[in-house]
Write a protein that binds this DNA or RNA. Structure first.
Length: 271
DNA sequence: CATCGGACCTGTTAGC
DNA sequence: TGCTAACAGGTCCGAT
């Protein structure tokens, strides 16, 4: 479900509810996620503490506290929601972070590709140590993409989804940004010009910012931390629209599998 | 080093 | 209606 805009939406939804609230207990009902949940460590380090800041890096949420950071990844189907009072957990409600006064943050994840990690103060978790630049940050540019793509034969779509190259772009927004920049998803990364990469970097920033403004993309059941769905789906040009007509030129859109994943494009607008 | 396929899971939907 | 296969927003790791 969640790519960068959905994770950002989640952050903004939960932050005002949990910041500086005293944590009473972490309840782990299902410790078997993408990686085992470090249950004991979480209890030990977070009990009676609070989160003073929440950040996003790539698709990771980083909840900062006195002794270190709780790092959460939502995987494919994960979500985090805040509740102001007790609520019976459902089948996929794997973890609750309980605060004072019956308030709690609940992690739900049917497919269990999500993860919880602990990292001590001033240390960098290995999973976050090799990430590429944030696409909305200043160091990400067409020049950056151009330089890093020379000699590489990988499809541009996969290049964009490689988190070592640029963080936070998944299947939806890779397709969407390539459409906006007029580039075919299967074109090799090394064959794209600097000019086109400048268009692409612009398109990536544009589509991500617009999606964040709309509260993310709700394809099926995504809701932000405040339980509201995202409204960006209506602004998608190609994702999930194969067989339908291009919103710009009315050509029938295609769905091409690139390394096992659906890739949507317009054969006329994208060359 | 670059690239590809498999792996981790469950739920939904399309097709027979 | 019921069964099976394909597919779904992610990404790490090992083989090539």
């Amino acid at each position: 479900m969640p790519e960068l805009p959905e994770v950002e939406t989640t952050l903004r939804g939960i932050e005002p509810h949990i910041l500086n609230r005293k944590i009473k207990r972490i309840v782990v009902r299902q410790p078997s996620l993408r990686w085992p949940v470090p249950n004991k460590e979480l209890q030990k380090k977070l009990k009676e503490k609070s989160f003073s800041k929440i950040q996003r890096r790539a698709k990771y949420l980083i909840l900062e506290s006195y002794l270190g950071n709780l790092i959460i990844h939502l995987g494919m189907s994960g979500s985090l929601k805040f509740f102001p009072e007790k609520k019976i957990p459902g089948k996929h409600d794997h973890i609750d972070i309980n605060f004072e006064g019956n308030r709690f943050l609940r992690f739900t994840d049917p497919r269990r590709f999500g993860s919880f990690h602990w990292v001590d103060k001033d240390r960098i978790h290995p999973l976050l140590s090799n990430l590429g630049p944030e696409p909305l940050g200043n160091s990400f540019s067409g020049t950056y993409l151009f330089k890093n793509s020379r000699g590489r034969k990988i499809a541009i779509k996969n290049f964009l989804m490689n988190s070592k190259i640029v963080a936070g772009i998944g299947n939806i927004y890779s397709s969407e940004s390539l459409f906006r920049a007029g580039i075919r998803p299967q074109k090799s990364a090394g064959s794209i010009s600097l000019k086109k990469y400048e268009d692409l970097a612009f398109s990536i920033k544009e589509v991500l910012m617009q999606a964040i403004e709309s509260g993310g993309t709700t394809l099926k059941d995504f809701v932000g931390g405040d339980n509201k769905p995202g409204f960006f789906k209506q602004n998608l040009f190609v994702y999930g629209r194969s067989g339908k007509r291009c919103k710009k030129c009315l050509t029938l859109l295609k769905n091409l599998k690139i390394t096992q994943r659906s890739s949507f494009y317009c054969p006329k607008c994208q060359r």
